[in-house]
Design a protein around this nucleic acid. Structure first.
Lengths: 158, 158
DNA sequence: CTAGTTTGTAAATCTGTTTAACAAAAAGTT
DNA sequence: AACTTTTTGTTAAACAGATTTACAAACTAG
């Protein structure tokens, strides 16, 4: 086994472990305020809605990778919990735009703050690496991303 | 925003996209032979069993991050499908060791081949980078892994 | 104006999981 | 040795999140 092969396997292994950890972390429910807990699925929806204000039900489904029906049901649950609001679209009478409520925004901000705290910690720990080294790492990761994109095309489209 | 901050955000973004792609790909069912399809959960179990021959039900659950009960049910399903076999442990009368059957091994090999093909493609695309660059990327990823480990300790143990 | 498409919803169902209760085996304690 | 506790696997009941299917209303295109 060549050195290169070994180092690439090393990177792959790191990625696998990072993904495993991510999945475990994102499986947890989140406490918002005193009485409200947000399930992992709800948290994903809130994040998608926070980053895409006013999307309709259909698009939310695409963003979350679920059916239109699942998206509709999820929104219903979030409305009942007071985290989002439905507003009739201004351009037509069939689409419905979803917006975070005040509480929904709070939940979103909490989640973002969690990620930001994590990011700051990272920044500190990576201070020993040069900008070039980090940028190169990003480029290497982009190669992984590209290869995965092609795999996905094979798997889905055809 | 400093250059370093920007490059680190860049890496984080790549990771997020890689994780999203991974999750989408691993949601797919897999065709084994003509008549047998393996669900994503079953595929994960088979992979765990292929990499850890003869583990017991309990340990399999730990490997998969699910309860002992879920692990037991999963094994039952795989036995019914003819992909794994239960064998009474040789050292005591309560543990049960799980082994892949011939067909199970085939399914495992298929899955591994899929990953290997993907790996070879990667190796080719990364040929332009030096071993040192790739090794540095691995080290940078290990920092991500470390930070996530600490987050997990905070979230789970306490 | 009619036919087809898009959008959201609701009911029934499916899949994978958890919780809880249980029995058998093993390990620890006195 | 006799007991308590822990570990291991199983099962039933319940649950969460998703899909499929069917439907109605709004839009679009011919």
């Amino acid at each position: 086994m060549s050195i290169k092969e070994e180092t690439v396997r090393h990177v792959s292994g790191r990625l696998r472990r990072i993904i495993a950890r991510h999945i475990r972390i994102e499986k947890l429910s989140i406490q918002v305020g005193e009485l409200l807990t947000v399930s992992p699925g709800e948290a994903r929806a809130i994040q998608a809605l926070g980053q895409n204000r006013g999307v309709n039900i259909n698009t939310l489904g695409v963003l979350l990778g679920v059916t239109r029906s699942a998206s509709s049901q999820m929104v219903g649950k979030l409305v009942k919990k007071g985290l989002v609001e439905k507003h009739a679209s201004e351009c037509n009478n069939k689409e419905i735009n979803i917006y975070l409520t005040k509480i929904g925004e709070e939940a979103f901000a909490n989640h973002e703050a969690f990620h930001e705290k994590y990011f700051v910690e990272l920044l500190d720990r990576l201070s020993g690496f040069s900008d070039t080294q980090i940028a190169t790492a990003a480029t290497i990761l982009s190669v992984f991303e590209d290869v995965m994109d092609e795999r996905m095309e094979e798997l889905f489209d055809v």
